[in-house]
């Protein structure tokens, strides 16, 4: 097994009932890389992302064929502890969704439910550390007890990132994390992604090609539920191998 590979997906087919959303997807996501997934809306990139931590299990009538491996272990095997899988593979959603609790409680939620901390002091340390990693600490350190809803949109999204980091995941899945943010907040989130990649494997779905070009090391292009092309980001954007990819990145459709 290749030590550089964090997640490996082999001939994955995904179904919503009888409707097939993914066709024979094969991909290897490298450790501590940022992998971007691009493609027109409805192409299956979000479905693919949610298949990696089995979030699709929440939708009744869905089914995955093929194999998804995390560190060589079958994510969909019956012995897989889904709860534990989701702790290891964190997720950031398109719309920031902090819980209606205080800023502190939002970050502390994950460690609490996972029973990671023994006492309040330890929890305090983690909260501070993760808020610092999410580049939010300086902005919120004086109002940790305030409601998370009082933060701006960009801050809320970074809080969600901090919340995800607090359970010490290995992989971060980001589903268009900046699509609802203004340019300045987007820049901050992208900067953050750049920082985080030193420690985490990141998979990011985006409809923004510039963003993919800026933040990612490798990029996959999805179209109609198929992974059309997967290559180093620079190569994919400058010399795409497939005609569809070229059409898409030059803006001929989508």
């Amino acid at each position: 097994m290749d030590d550089q590979i964090k997640i490996s997906v082999k001939s994955a087919n995904f179904f919503y009932g009888s409707q097939q959303a993914l066709h024979e997807v094969n991909i290897s996501i490298r450790r501590c890389f940022v992998t971007a997934l691009i493609g027109p809306s409805g192409c299956g990139k979000s479905t693919f992302l949610r298949a990696l931590n089995r979030m699709n299990d929440l939708i009744p009538g869905t089914r995955l064929e093929g194999r998804v491996e995390l560190d060589g272990q079958d994510v969909y095997s019956s012995s897989m502890d889904v709860i534990q899988l989701r702790r290891r593979v964190g997720m950031i959603f398109q719309r920031s969704n902090p819980f209606p609790m205080s800023i502190y409680e939002n970050v502390a939620y994950g460690p609490r439910v996972n029973g990671l901390m023994k006492n309040r002091a330890e929890l305090d340390v983690t909260v501070e550390k993760t808020l610092r990693s999410a580049a939010l600490w300086d902005e919120v350190k004086d109002r940790l007890a305030r409601s998370a809803m009082s933060l701006s949109g960009g801050q809320q999204q970074r809080l969600c990132i901090a919340r995800a980091l607090a359970v010490e995941p290995e992989v971060l899945l980001m589903d268009e994390p900046a699509s609802a943010l203004d340019p300045i907040s987007t820049a901050k989130v992208e900067e953050l992604i750049y920082e985080l990649k030193r420690t985490y494997t990141i998979v990011i779905v985006t409809h923004n090609m510039q963003q993919a070009a800026r933040v990612s090391d490798e990029t996959g292009f999805f179209l109609n539920g198929r992974l059309v092309e997967f290559a180093e980001t620079k190569k994919l954007f400058t010399a795409p191998a497939k005609r569809e990819t070229e059409d898409y990145i030059t803006g001929r459709f989508g």
């Binding site: 560190d71 060589g72 897989m80 502890d81």
Partner: peptide
């Protein structure tokens, strides 16, 4: 193989499940 992946089933997880 991987210095940072921890066991799939830490003790408290089984109890929690």
């Amino acid at each position: 193989q991987t210095p940072f992946s921890r066991p799939l089933f830490p003790p408290q997880s089984a109890v929690r499940n």
